[in-house]
């Protein structure tokens, strides 16, 4: 099965190890993984800012790069949601592209959804000694129904215990450029999320979107919590999060 991996711009820039974790998981599931070298961004920042033309241009670029794959997998609910639910709307008035984009949309999957429901991964390489809580990122949850998939996969991780927090489905306040433009409101929302994470007693919060990761980790550290780890679900499943030399979360 030939799978195109859409790494996402934030993982490329901020946390390459999540991209490699996704790669490892897909290969563990027996996929032939291709990472198109020219990929950049799915266009969501422009789309949500109202820069429709820019978003369309980038949607076409992704379409050209990923058209040929049997499946496209994205380690982000937000970017996968952009392709699956918004690309068809974005190119709705371009009949020539619409059919292609609908095909792409229907073959694009968020990583955990793909691992659980398409390739039906039985065993995961990761092991984790501790208790984690799971934050449901908004786009994954409400656009793609990503809720049971990460939990089902985490249940396969040796040693890992999952403890749900209150309001796990509530937004962390990130919202892309919202976090910059309305920083105080954004941080206020993040603070509530951090309170719920702390109250869960877990030693790590696991989630599936880099935007939320940066937001939650940034707020946790600012409020003085240096110990709660913030991990991408792919890192935990692949067992790559414990390498201290590239892990920003474990200090010392």
């Amino acid at each position: 099965m030939r799978v195109g991996l859409f790494v996402t711009c934030l993982i490329d820039l901020m946390r390459p190890r999540i991209g490699f974790a996704a790669l490892r998981l897909l290969e563990a599931a027996g996929c032939e993984v291709v990472v198109p070298a020219t990929q950049t961004c799915c266009g969501q920042p422009g789309y949500n800012a109202g820069a429709r033309g820019a978003a369309q241009a980038l949607a076409r670029k992704v379409l050209d790069e990923f058209d040929a794959f049997e499946y496209v997998v994205v380690p982000s609910g937000s970017c996968a949601g952009m392709i699956r639910t918004h690309y068809p709307e974005l190119l709705a008035d371009q009949p020539a592209e619409l059919a292609r984009v609908q095909r792409l949309a229907s073959r694009t999957y968020e990583l955990t959804d793909f691992l659980l429901n398409v390739v039906k991964l039985e065993k995961v390489p990761g092991a984790y000694n501790g208790t984690v809580t799971y934050h449901d990122s908004c786009s994954g949850l409400r656009e793609l129904d990503i809720k049971a998939q990460p939990r089902a996969l985490l249940a396969k991780v040796a040693g890992l215990k999952l403890k749900e927090m209150n309001e796990a489905e509530t937004c962390c306040g990130f919202g892309g450029t919202f976090a910059l433009k309305f920083g105080e409101i954004s941080a206020h929302i993040a603070e509530r999320k951090c309170g719920n994470i702390s109250a869960s007693g877990a030693d790590a919060v696991v989630l599936g979107d880099l935007g939320c990761m940066l937001n939650i980790e940034g707020r946790l550290r600012r409020r003085g919590d240096m110990s709660t780890k913030v991990l991408h679900v792919a890192e935990v499943l692949a067992g790559v999060e414990e390498r201290p030399h590239i892990n920003a979360n474990t200090r010392g």
Binding site: L13, M14, R17, A179, S186, A190
Partner: peptide
């Protein structure tokens, strides 16, 4: 230029090398 973010939050630093560089 990103005071909106950093006024009440830190920004976790990136690993320092991009995915595409490491992958290549």
């Amino acid at each position: 230029l990103a005071g909106g973010w950093t006024a009440s939050r830190d920004m976790p630093a990136p690993q320092g090398v991009t995915f595409r560089e490491l992958y290549r």
